[in-house]
Amino acid sequence: MSPLSRFTQTGLVVVMLAFFVYVLWASQGFRDAARIFPTTIAVAGILMALGELARQLLTRFRPEEADITDLGDDASMDIRAHFVTSGKLLAWLIGFVALVFTVGLIPATVVFVFAMMRLQFATPLWPSVLVTAGVLAVVLTLSRVLLLRWPQPLIPIPGL
């Protein structure tokens, strides 16, 4: 197991532990009927998270076997490079949602799909145009069929 994977694995459990502690703390102000369930689960969660951290500490030099939880993921890849690329893609997604908020879904879709294909994946021009047009058609059709009304963006583009 690479150090990066080990760090992620421990980090996630620590985040969950923090979440359990927060829930436990935030639940104490509720009336009984709303307090007992989250309190019990949070306490159980804290114990299990601590147990998991202990297990990770004890087995840190031993390799871990792949199992049912991996959903057929393969082992042969460069973890660091994968993290970097995934981080970039996540940034693209966040940018897209921000764009939806500011200029609205339809323009955001056009800009996002085209820009991502060209800049991130260096797709040739014509395939990028075709995919962008196709996605736009799908989005417009679905919005219409599902009667989706997109909320007003912050900076509406006139005519759209």
Partner: peptide, 15 residues
């Protein structure tokens, strides 16, 4: 393109 999307947006947004 522009015309269609305008018309659709009007429809979709119920403006």
């Amino acid at each position: 393109m522009r015309l269609t999307s305008t018309a659709l947006a009007t429809l979709a947004l119920g403006i």
